[in-house]
Nucleic acid binder design. Sequence first.
RNA 1: GGAGAGUUGGCCGAGUGGUUUAAGGCGCACGUCUGGAAAGCGUGUUUCCCAAAAGGAUCAAGGGUUCGAAUCCCUUACUCUCCGCCA
Length: 426
Amino acid sequence: MLEVTRIRNDYDAVIAGLQKRNLSPEVLQLVDEVIAQDDRRKQVQAELDQLLAQRNSLSKEIGQLMQGGRRDEAESMKQSVSAMKGSIEIMQDQLTAAKDRIEAILLTLPNVPQTIVPAGKHAEDNEVFRDWAGPLPAAGDKPLPHWELGKKYNLFDFELGVKITGSGFPLYRGKGARLQRALIQFFLDQAIAAGYEEIIPPLLVNEDTARATGQLPDKEGQMYHCTADNLYLIPTAEVPVTNIYRDAILQESDFPIKLTGYTPCFRREAGSYGSDVKGLNRVHQFDKVEIVQFQHPDRSDEALMAMLDHVASLLDQLGLPYRILRLCGGDLGHTSSITYDFEVFSAAQQKWLEVSSVSNFETYQTNRMRLRFRNGDGATQLAHSLNGSALALARVVAALLEFYQTSDGIEMPSVLIPYTNFERIG
RNA sequence: GGAGAGUUGGCCGAGUGGUUUAAGGCGCACGUCUGGAAAGCGUGUUUCCCAAAAGGAUCAAGGGUUCGAAUCCCUUACUCUCCGCCA
């Protein structure tokens, strides 16, 4: 969440940034309410502290009187302290009310987009940051969509997924399963080579964890919830991996912290329909290798670019056509200050599929998580957090199968062969 | 799942209602000493709120009792031991 001090000190920039998100005037007015509520909070806090100080010193005197055996004086003093109770309680309630209101507003307010984020309402307003320079496969050139290839070569089975669980839970088999595992291993090895530490996190998280990275309360309906134990199935490894550093104070020398993790991801995707959910385009369970960084605020921009290069190199090595978009304010996620999406070209469907989203959250997540570091002055300061998919499997598999199909099989890109242990499917 | 014991600062650890303003130790930082270092000695060292001295909050979390709670009561979470179940 945003820091109140930033809203105060950088008011104009915060408003200007939030305006790029295409927010309603009502939401923008909440920024002013935060300041008003915070003024109120400070005032009430000061008055309450004074009362508490008074009570503390009187109570101490009572203790001394009691020990000195002057019980009558102690008794009358007790009564006067008791009389303060009512006002202390009222002030405490007011303080809690102000704090709760500030918290509620801050949860509503999204991150402030960076200055280079374009304004815009929808996905169409996203800026093409790096386009695919080469030619794209023409329509009909690669005729079969991945779901038909999957059926033809017995790589995955949606009907069995439905039988076992329900729609959106694909079952992979044979070379389909092996390709999946090969890609995971390849992506992890690449991340490790780039200096990331591998993590295998829990796949179920508690409420505190889901709140810290921002899934709660805003995206409650997107997660599978195990109510008996009040745990949530993770929608991305970002959630458990980022929370490793919840409520911590780092040294500057600890930076950069670079973590990677493979996990299955579970998303309810309520409200999705149509061609978007065909085949592997959008499923409830998919595999993903995530990269996460914690950085010094001065170096998070360059860290983001390095993450971009890392993801790009994965797609380059796989030989798939892709482009990079810089998301516009309206399409930017709630917690992000800037996001680049990677879209890989689906040759048979003739459309772009999102396979990675790389973001700098600056202090938005770390403020909620209380992840700080000790700066040169010895003071604590919020760290920056970043993450990205490297990569999301299901759609990469879809694009890969379609792109490398021939009339009688599917060729594996050479970089994958040491991992798959087969050169072609079919 | 059942029974019992626990949770105190970066770490260890004392603390059963009032000089606890959380003892003592380790670690760390600075100073002193030294040719330099170690040892010794001295000072400092949770985090958060407030512009800040002062002040306030903070002993797993939340609630309660009390003039006053690390300390007593209730609820929850977690850890350990034993029993049960189990890959």
